[in-house]
Design a protein around this nucleic acid. Structure first.
Lengths: 113, 113
DNA sequence: ATCATGCTTAGCCATATCGCTAAGTATCAG
DNA sequence: CTGATACTTAGCGATATGGCTAAGCATGAT
């Protein structure tokens, strides 16, 4: 439970910036070099590097250097914890909405969670 | 597309803090008063108030005051934009993983999306 | 009227974030 | 070797964040 706290915080924080999200979107189709990623943002290279570092720390992207070119690529499974958190909470929230709190409690008992 | 940018940033930022996530979790089952929410965090009231303000600005909770007690409750649909963003990106990312980009494009055409 | 309770506001401090420039380092081309 | 390219590092400034205390205000109980 509390174990994933840091992961989640890093992930959510990484996703909280429009520039970083646009980088992720741009990176979705194909891996790209740092300069290619910087282009459309209109930001300077060091600034973009920082964003990439944040994304990499959160585990959302990987990068490797070939010659003088660093290529960045997306890490699809990285979003799993976010998705899990979302699913759990949506379940509880909607249960509350439908006034089925008891039901949820029951399901959780059945799952042994 | 760019229209939801601010919403998403506010949402992700609100979710990036462990204290705020714990408040949301605590609030999942039942609405609660500010003091009740502050208790388990070990933080002072003004600090908790700030967290609540962030959550409310992001649309994740609502609050109303009855007498001198402010009661906070979760807003379940608030997570929809997050879920949407996640779904879209997971689709693209996994497509890339499985090298089935063409297939996804196809499905999207069939769905008229 | 008085006091306790529950929230609210104002303001301080430390640290983090996001942008930048300037000056590196490391390839690759000629 | 020289120069261009592609990143990298160092460090600065403005603003935002997350915590606090102290003091204020409104309501409920006595």
């Amino acid at each position: 439970m509390a174990k994933h706290d840091r992961d989640l915080s890093l992930l959510f924080h990484a996703l909280a910036d429009p520039t970083r999200r646009s980088i992720l979107t741009r990176l979705a189709g194909t891996p790209a070099a740092v300069t290619d990623l910087a282009g459309p943002t209109g930001l300077r290279l060091p600034t973009v590097m920082r964003h990439l570092a944040v994304l990499e720390e959160a585990g959302l992207i990987t990068s490797s250097k070939d010659g003088r070119i660093r290529t960045c690529a997306v890490v699809p499974q990285a979003l799993d914890p976010v998705r899990t958190w979302l699913d759990e909470h949506r379940a509880i929230w909607e249960a509350r909405l439908d006034r089925l709190d008891a039901f949820v409690t029951n399901v959780m008992k059945e799952n042994g969670t």
